[in-house]
Structures are given as structure tokens and as C-alpha cells.
Simulated assay, not measured.
Amino acid sequence: MEYRRLGRCGLKVSEVCLGTMTFGHGTEENEAARIVGTALDAGVIFFDTADGYSNGASEVMLGRALGARRHEAIIATKVFNPMGTGPNDSGMSRRHIMNAVEGSLRRLGTDYVDLYYIHHVDVQTPLEEMLRAFDDLVRHGKIRYTACSNYEAWRLMEALWTSDSKGLARFEAYQPQYSLVVRDIEEELVPVCGLKGLGMVVWSPLAGGYLSGKYRPGERAVAGSRSAENWAFPTRYFHPQHEAILAELVAVAVTLGRSPAQVALRWVLEQPQVASAIVGARTAEQLTDSLACTGWELPQATRERLDAVSALPRRYPRSMEDGMAARRDQAVRLTQPSRA
């Protein structure tokens, strides 16, 4: 297992982060304990949950599974989703943040969270209000680092500017969706994270199981999987040529003697700015297969094949400006007029 620095901060995380969204939704407590134990024994120290996962059950099950090994773990959780029926039981108001973190700490059985995310965009709460609440939680020792998920590039930049200009704790990580079939973040968000020193912790690197090896091009449901329960991969986000990408992934995996899941995860882990990839599992055996994405590298030719088949069309303004550096370098130097 490789351990990587999370952006510009001093925290190091395992390159594989165990996602626990299935805990309480397809994975019962005994199996959750097996999965967490398998992860820890393999060197995984990074665990991702959210208060809204199974209405808090995911946090409860993760906390119990870690038990006395809590000190080995980096725990990330999130705030935004409804945790009650009241008008202030969701969103990113100061009131909800302060209430939500206490609930997460209680369910997790810990007195601090290592990484606390804004889970979704809240257009009804000023950025400064939520950032000041996060800053207070850092100062009180209830959270160690702050982060956000699913922000557009402009909103992320505005949040970073607000934190820097007001002297508040600033985001150290960003959590986007990213996989071979969802590469949209490369246009704007990856450059922002590189410029500002944020570590990317990516979700759905297997595209909701689409790239796991269970499916073949044209298949939409497999017995015993989430797709059979209508809880499947979010195809509305996928590359228009996602079936061709899947076919190439399967072919590459056969050539390398690896599972499609291992190859898809390896591709993500070798991308710039990615500190860790969140890998979920319903069973310990599924996790064991995914963990074999560590300890090796894709051959360059293989990476180029996957890059090519999954590349997105260049969009304006980048499509117009791509060649401008070369144009500048090749410009003819005009002769200065002589002075009589």
C-alpha cells in the first residue's frame, strides 16, 4: 500500500480509501466488520463515510468495526443531507453544521473527525458562514482538516479565496467523481486542485460497479448486484462512448492478467492530483480483489490505450487556446525600424 500526502497539508493517507456507503444498505454489521478488518490488515488507513449514508447507520457500523483500532484510522465524513424532518436539519447553515458534527462524533464513537467534507452545494447559505463554522470546529479540535465535494471550479476558487482572505481554515482536499467513463473534472477542477494544492480523493472510480468486471458492453443489470435492485451506476454522467471504453478495459485486463476493476482503479491512481480513490465493497472478497490494484503500474502503452479511448472532446475555450503557446513560440520576430 502506498501512502500519499493529502495535497499541501502534512496528512498522509492510503492510496485506497475504503468507502462505506454500502454499510447498512446491502452490507450488514458482521460483514462490515470483516471488510474493515480486511482493509486495515492490507494497510488501508483511510475510511470514507457520511452522516446521510443509511441515515447514519454507515457511521455507526464503521465506528464499531474500527473499535480499538480507531487510532490507526483516518476517518472522513460529510455534512449536508437531511438528518431530520425540521427546516434546519439539512444544508450547510452554521446551526446544522454544529449539530451534525456532534451527531457524527456520537455515531462514530470518536471525539474528532480527521477530514470533514461539505457534501453538496448549498446555494442558500453564504460560503463564509459555512467556512467560519468549519474553522471553529478545527479550532475546537472536533475536526482536523476541512474539505468539500462536488463543487464547480469557480465555487471552489471562491471558497479558497474567502478562507485565505479571512484567515480561516481552508480546504485541503476535494472529492469529485472520476473514472475512465467520467473524466469531466480534467477540464477545470484538476488544474484548480493542482494550482491550489488540494489533494483529490475521488469517488466512484469504478463508475458504480460498471467497470468492475461484472458487466459487458450492452448489459445493464446483473443478478446479485446493485443494478438488480435499481441502485446502479449513474449512466447519465458517463462518456457517450462508455461501452467502447468498457470493451477496451476488458481487453486490456485480459492482456495484463488483471481484473477490470484492478485496471480501472490503477488508471485512476496514476492520474495527477489523485491522492486516494474511494473503493466500496459489499463483501470482504470484493474488497480483496480491488486491493490488488496496488503495488504495480500500468505499462505506458496500456495507459495510452485507455487514455485514447476515454478522451473527451476538447471544449471552448481550451479547444481554441490549445495551440497558442506554440503560435507564440513560432512568431516571427519583426525587425526594428532603423533610426536615421
Score class of each variant (00 low, 15 high):
residue 156 L to I: 13
residue 310 S to A: 14
residue 82 P to Q: 12
residue 287 L to Q: 02
residue 153 A to I: 06
residue 110 T to Y: 10
residue 64 R to W: 00
residue 196 K to Q: 15
residue 9 C to D: 09
residue 8 R to H: 13
residue 38 T to A: 10
residue 24 G to M: 00
residue 106 R to Q: 07
residue 136 D to I: 08
residue 205 P to S: 12
residue 204 S to F: 00
residue 234 P to Y: 05
residue 267 W to Y: 15
residue 2 E to H: 11
residue 31 E to T: 10
residue 192 V to K: 11
residue 187 E to H: 15
residue 325 A to M: 14
residue 118 I to A: 07
residue 177 Q to P: 12
residue 212 S to Q: 05
residue 127 L to G: 05
residue 197 G to C: 14
residue 245 I to G: 00
residue 96 H to R: 04
residue 156 L to A: 13
residue 282 R to Y: 01
residue 214 K to M: 03
residue 109 G to Q: 04
residue 24 G to T: 03
residue 44 V to F: 06
residue 149 S to W: 05
residue 123 V to G: 08
residue 17 C to T: 14
residue 256 L to P: 05
residue 326 A to M: 14
residue 150 N to R: 10
residue 115 L to S: 05
residue 63 G to I: 01
residue 218 G to Q: 12
residue 246 L to M: 09
residue 232 A to G: 15
residue 157 M to I: 15
residue 106 R to V: 02
residue 272 P to D: 13
residue 58 S to N: 06
residue 326 A to E: 15
residue 254 V to W: 00
residue 218 G to R: 11
residue 178 Y to D: 08
residue 331 A to Y: 13
residue 251 A to M: 04
residue 251 A to Q: 10
residue 29 E to M: 00
residue 6 L to K: 05
residue 127 L to P: 03
residue 221 A to H: 03
residue 269 L to K: 01
residue 93 S to H: 01
residue 153 A to G: 06
residue 273 Q to K: 14
residue 135 D to A: 11
residue 198 L to F: 14
residue 74 I to F: 10
residue 63 G to A: 06
residue 77 T to V: 10
residue 29 E to K: 00
residue 98 M to A: 11
residue 88 N to H: 08
residue 82 P to K: 11
residue 5 R to Y: 13
residue 119 H to Q: 09
residue 282 R to A: 02
residue 186 E to V: 11
residue 210 Y to E: 02
residue 303 R to P: 05
residue 19 G to P: 02
residue 276 S to I: 04
residue 228 A to D: 06
residue 60 V to H: 00
residue 29 E to S: 03
residue 210 Y to D: 02
residue 58 S to Y: 02
residue 320 M to E: 15
residue 94 R to V: 06
residue 205 P to T: 12
residue 157 M to L: 15
residue 171 F to Q: 08
residue 66 L to H: 02
residue 216 R to N: 05
residue 202 V to E: 07
residue 3 Y to P: 11
residue 84 G to R: 04
residue 191 P to S: 10
residue 212 S to M: 05
residue 270 E to D: 12
residue 248 E to G: 07
residue 148 C to T: 15
residue 8 R to N: 14
residue 33 A to M: 04
residue 88 N to L: 08
residue 240 P to V: 12
residue 180 L to E: 01
residue 145 Y to A: 06
